[in-house]
Amino acid sequence: MMEFDIEKLIEECVFTAVRSSGSGGQNVNKVASKVVLSFDVNGSENLTELQKQLILKKMSNRISKNGVLQISSDSERTQWINKKAVTGKFRLLIREALKPERKRIATKPTFQSVQKRLDDKKRQSGKKRFRSGDFDV
């Protein structure tokens, strides 16, 4: 695994508290308990260029056009717990993105799988031959 200090990355994050969306009761419309974590991947001083490219590639669906990763949490009632939750999500996502991909080891198909494929092929061709009227009884 590539070396990086997750705590230094968390220090680079910007936390914003906003009001949760959706319907709610007494609490939801008044209190800014949703926490949004923003992390500028390209502007990070603690990641190497290779690590930045890996994160941008693997998390392209979560990263904006200007290279900012945004994660939010509004599942809990307090801002503090949501901040802990969003930080946990961030740790997990970064670890997953920087985990080295394992090489696939090519294997031969099993005898059973080859037999099944050939049998299915034979059955399918028999069906087609029967439909065309070009069959020997």
Rank of each mutant, 00 (worst) to 15 (best):
M1W: 06
M1K: 11
M2V: 12
E3W: 02
I6M: 15
E7F: 03
K8N: 13
K8S: 12
I10F: 03
E11Q: 14
E12M: 06
E12S: 08
F15L: 12
T16A: 07
V18C: 09
R19D: 09
S21V: 04
G22N: 07
S23E: 11
G24P: 10
G24C: 10
G24E: 07
G24I: 02
G25K: 13
N27A: 10
N29M: 06
N29W: 02
K30S: 05
K30W: 08
K30V: 05
S33N: 13
K34D: 04
K34G: 05
V35T: 04
V36K: 06
S38I: 01
F39S: 03
G43T: 02
G43N: 09
E45F: 02
T48E: 05
T48W: 01
E49P: 02
Q51T: 03
K52V: 03
L56P: 03
S60Q: 07
R62M: 12
R62N: 07
I63Q: 02
I63F: 02
S64I: 03
K65H: 05
N66I: 10
G67E: 04
G67P: 03
V68W: 00
L69F: 12
L69S: 09
L69P: 02
Q70E: 10
I71A: 00
D74G: 14
S75C: 00
R77M: 02
R77W: 02
T78H: 04
T78A: 02
T78E: 07
Q79C: 05
I81R: 11
I81L: 11
N82I: 06
K84D: 13
A85I: 08
T87C: 03
F90G: 10
R91S: 08
R91V: 11
L92W: 01
I94P: 08
R95F: 10
R95Q: 12
R95L: 09
A97F: 05
L98E: 13
K99R: 13
K99A: 14
K99W: 03
K99Q: 15
P100R: 09
P100V: 06
E101T: 10
R102Q: 14
R102H: 06
K103S: 12
R104G: 01
I105P: 00
I105R: 13
I105T: 14
I105K: 15
T110D: 14
F111Q: 12
Q115V: 11
Q115M: 11
R117M: 12
R117E: 15
R117I: 07
K122C: 03
K122A: 15
R123P: 01
R123S: 15
R123T: 14
R123G: 06
Q124I: 06
S125N: 14
S125C: 04
K127Y: 11
K128R: 15
F130H: 12
F135N: 08
D136R: 04
V137R: 13
